[in-house]
Design a protein around this nucleic acid. Structure first.
Lengths: 243, 243
DNA sequence: CGCGTTCTTGACTAGAATCAATGCATGTGG
DNA sequence: CCACATGCATTGATTCTAGTCAAGAACGCG
């Protein structure tokens, strides 16, 4: 519907860097890309829903995507935020089951789209593609495992600190008063990312704001002292000289 | 060193069913298997250690393997138990980083072994292999994600119930007085699998034992009423008629 | 300007961790 | 075969983190 944010040129660059396509012979890469179609999602729209049949395979070119999962009891958790260059829905499409989670565009998004079977054929034809997919999955698996360990062994405050630090890496934008997390980010989001409640998050953030570590507005967050957050995330003693 | 528990014949059967090798042309399968070597680990020995360089790739033929991870603070968590037919160390070997966890033989084990680079070549030659690896990873990823969600949203008792139910599926052996979990399983193991402490586990198990749901000995566990555990795991009301 | 969100804060509670003491098995060596 | 050491398991008392509930403030939007 709308024109994509970036030019085709720029998008190709993003794709070529994307770990799914790296190391692919240039000719093969263009062949693979020619089989893709292109879709735009406006902010707030859903790319797919939990329990949908997974027969599509996406690569995010522009925008950001929030992956959530909702339990039978109605608890929602946020599993991942995707930024450009990452594959979306790959796991479900590989495994040929239903999407275990919902993908929502939190900003306007451009995505490359493949049909599941088509991608399977491509992988048989270009083994590198399958190997890359597996590697990408391996990396994501490790990230998830780390977060699992954190959840199992760490306090809420540390988990929130870690999550914010991760977000600065993913979507941080340097401003004069600190690093802005450049996407809408509510207390609820943070709570659902760290496995806690909005109340606990609010208390923690309030305290940090008093200590000058962060500045917040509604659904927005600036990290003034990344180092201070690291101190909390790593459970180092605060800046007192005495130990 | 020692003769394997099963005959080569039996092992081939296991391997052929293993999701890593299924759908492979029989000729290709034998070709792939011929490149593997074979190793035996005695109970209690370590297959690899956290932080080792990951250049080996295993498939478990017999025995069981416990995967643990230890945090800088010294908290240990159990990430997975492997039973025959599963790939061990695959993720790290794919991603070409260090093993993020330790693999320990909890019983005598037989494994097939490949060198990392060799497996990479094999995958380029037999794309099906790479696709299967990716699919296998996708399945494990989903399992991990489920457990992550449980950890984030559920109480300890439910998590312990779920874990025991999973173990009955993985290593359950039908006995006359219930389903025996056929591997050494201490309170500590359960605590590290569910993200809690041995004290909480002990209290919960004691209560269940009083209610006749389970029977325990040292490092051993029999589930007398799987249904009762399901009731707890799903948070259904107990067997009272009134709601 | 009124409405719906989002966010904050306080009071209270409960689930689970921690600490400490003790009881049991199991295996060891005199 | 018994005394002992060791590791595993239980239980009670206590503490504390974080969840729950409730009320209201601040913000943004139509």
């Amino acid at each position: 519907m709308m024109a994509p944010k970036n030019t085709i040129q720029q998008q190709l660059q993003i794709v070529a860097q994307c770990s799914l396509f790296c190391d692919l012979a240039p000719a093969d890469l263009t062949a693979v890309l020619q089989t893709a179609t292109h879709r735009h999602y406006t902010s707030g729209s859903f790319i797919f829903n939990q329990e949908d049949k997974a027969n599509t395979f996406y690569v995010l070119l522009a925008g950001s995507v929030r992956m959530t999962q909702i339990t039978p009891e109605g608890h929602q958790i946020i599993v991942h935020f995707f930024t450009p260059g990452h594959g979306v829905g790959i796991i479900a499409a590989l495994g040929n089951f239903n999407y275990p989670l919902t993908a929502e565009a939190v900003e306007d998004c451009d995505l490359l789209v493949w049909n599941r079977e088509l991608m399977n054929h491509l992988m048989e034809k270009y083994p590198k593609l399958a190997i890359n997919a597996a590697k990408m999955l391996a990396v994501r698996f490790n990230e998830l495992q780390d977060r699992y360990r954190e959840l199992a062994t760490e306090r809420v405050e540390r988990r929130v600190a870690r999550t914010l630090l991760r977000l600065t890496k993913q979507a941080g934008k340097k401003m004069k008063d600190g690093i802005l997390i450049d996407m809408p980010l509510s207390r609820r989001d943070l709570a659902e990312m760290t496995g806690t409640t909005i109340y606990s998050v609010s208390r923690i953030i309030s305290k940090w704001e008093q200590d000058g570590l962060v500045k917040t507005r509604r659904e927005q967050m600036t990290i003034c002292s990344p180092h201070g957050l690291v101190t909390i995330a790593e459970d180092l003693p605060p800046v007192k000289p005495a130990n």
